[in-house]
């Protein structure tokens, strides 16, 4: 049960390559891996799509950090090379924590647990919010949906079925 994912918003002043997509200034994408979609694996913008199509969605917890160009390069590398999904420790919370931790400072690193699960990430994100910055922490933060859904790497335009 549950889900975990990443959003990235471009504040560069011009377009940016994020994962395998080109994103306009001021626009966002989400990335996450899914095991209950056809096909399974890495999707772009599936979270906003799921919300828009009325797939059940609860309130998330989330926290943010800035990305420099060199951080984005690391994040992009991780997004484009982790496109598969597996139930045990290759699931949505594995992917989200891997991408986040690839650039996070030590005190910002999340822990999805021995068996990676979204519920463990919820606790970890709350803890970072308390320890590092409540101002960067949010509950029920809006899920961006500025672009349609894409699957895999290189990204192929298609819609998931849940």
């Amino acid at each position: 049960a549950g889900h975990a994912w990443i959003s990235i918003t471009n504040y560069n002043g011009s377009s940016l390559k994020i994962g395998g997509l080109t994103v306009d200034d001021g626009k966002s994408i989400t990335v996450g891996t899914w095991g209950n979609t056809d096909p399974k694996g890495l999707w772009y913008n599936a979270e906003g799509y799921a919300q828009s199509t009325g797939v059940y969605w609860g309130d998330s917890v989330s926290i943010q950090r800035p990305l420099r160009q060199q951080d984005l390069a690391v994040v992009n590398q991780n997004i484009t090379t982790h496109t598969s999904w597996g139930l045990v420790n290759n699931n949505c919370s594995t992917f989200a924590s891997l991408v986040w931790n690839s650039v996070a400072t030590e005190d910002e690193k999340v822990d999805a647990g021995m068996i990676n699960l979204p519920g463990n990430l919820v606790s970890s994100i709350k803890e970072i919010g308390a320890n590092v910055s409540w101002s960067l922490y949010a509950e029920g933060y809006r899920v961006p949906f500025d672009y349609p859904t894409y699957y895999g790497n290189p990204p192929i335009r298609k819609n998931p079925t849940f």
Binding site: A1, G2, H3, A4, W5, I6, S7, I8, T9, N10, Y11, N12, L16, I18, E47, W57, G58, D59, S60, V61, S62, I63, Q64, R65, P66, L67, R68, Q69, D71, L72, V75, S93, A96, S97, V99, W100, V103, V110, L117, P118, G119, L121, V122, I125, Y141, V143
Partner: peptide, 12 residues
Amino acid sequence: MSVAVMRIYALG
């Protein structure tokens, strides 16, 4: 200088 903001979300 930052060019983007990343957010990690979890629910469940």
